Computed example of a mutant assay.
Amino acid sequence: MQEIVDFILELEKLKGVTRKNKPIGLSRYENSAEHSWQIAMLAISLQQYAAEPVNIDRVVAMLLIHDIGEIDTGDTIVFAEGGWEERKAAEFVAVTRIFGLLPGSSGEYFLSLWQEFELGQTAEARFANAMDRAMPALLNLNNNGQSWRENNISYERVVDRLADQIQNGCPALWQYLKVRLDTAHAKGWFGA
């Protein structure tokens, strides 16, 4: 019991990992725990639109753990360029440590889910990755491009980073977003 409690209390630190998007209507930035909860809810809500049938319980589990490594590494904006291999290696070290707090095979299970998400080769991982990529765009589209403007992210960079992953996991969501991204571009909601 104590090992599980220690693990859960370690996860508390995810609430202190600040991201680059602001929750709609708030002046503060969201944290990674809020992001994980929200994309899990997005996945449950959009399950019927997945590119192929998915085990939603597995998708939700992936989404709830996919950013746990950020407890040690911090968050990196999805539109960052370069250095991804180093960041992912550091996250792997972090999740290995954190999941290692769990007894028995529990930690191995979570680590395998994290790796499945990162590889993006299963239907569940593709759908989960689509949700992860879509949520920051949805927030920006409802905050007049807040983080795109603050971080000088161009329309082209957003489309290049999001299109394939969202389309592969949830084509209907990409169709929905693309129209709105084009409208936001016309309104000047992107950086240079």
Rank of each mutant, 00 (worst) to 15 (best):
A50H: 01
A50C: 03
A50Y: 11
A51T: 00
A51C: 09
E52A: 15
P53K: 03
P53E: 14
V54R: 05
V54Y: 06
N55M: 09
N55S: 05
N55Y: 12
N55V: 14
N55P: 06
N55T: 13
I56V: 01
I56K: 07
D57E: 15
D57N: 15
D57T: 12
R58T: 15
R58D: 13
V59S: 06
V59T: 07
V59F: 06
V59N: 06
V59E: 02
V59I: 07
V60Q: 13
V60K: 12
V60W: 09
A61R: 15
A61G: 12
A61I: 08
M62V: 01
M62Y: 02
M62T: 02
M62A: 00
M62Q: 12
M62D: 06
L63G: 03
L63W: 05
L64T: 00
L64Y: 01
L64I: 11
L64W: 07
I65A: 07
I65C: 14
H66K: 09
H66F: 08
H66T: 03
H66S: 04
D67I: 03
D67S: 10
I68W: 00
I68M: 07
I68Q: 08
I68E: 05
I68S: 06
I68A: 12
I68G: 02
G69M: 01
G69S: 06
G69W: 09
E70H: 11
E70S: 06
E70M: 15
I71F: 00
I71V: 04
I71Q: 05
D72R: 15
D72T: 00
D72Q: 03
D72S: 14
T73D: 01
T73A: 11
T73R: 13
G74N: 02
G74E: 03
D75A: 10
D75F: 06
D75T: 04
D75G: 09
T76E: 11
T76P: 00
T76I: 09
T76G: 01
T76L: 12
I77N: 13
I77Y: 13
I77A: 11
I77F: 09
V78I: 13
V78D: 00
V78Y: 13
V78K: 10
F79P: 01
A80W: 10
A80I: 08
A80T: 12
A80M: 10
A80G: 07
E81V: 14
G82Q: 02
G82V: 10
G82I: 08
G82D: 01
G83F: 05
G83I: 08
G83E: 12
G83M: 04
G83T: 05
W84H: 06
W84F: 08
W84D: 02
W84I: 05
W84N: 06
W84V: 03
W84M: 10
E85L: 07
E86K: 14
E86I: 05
E86N: 09
R87I: 04
R87K: 14
R87F: 12
R87Q: 11
K88M: 14
K88T: 08
K88W: 08
A89R: 10
A89W: 06
A89H: 00
A89L: 00
A89Q: 01
E91N: 02
E91S: 04
E91C: 06
E91Y: 02
E91Q: 14
E91L: 03
F92L: 15
F92I: 06
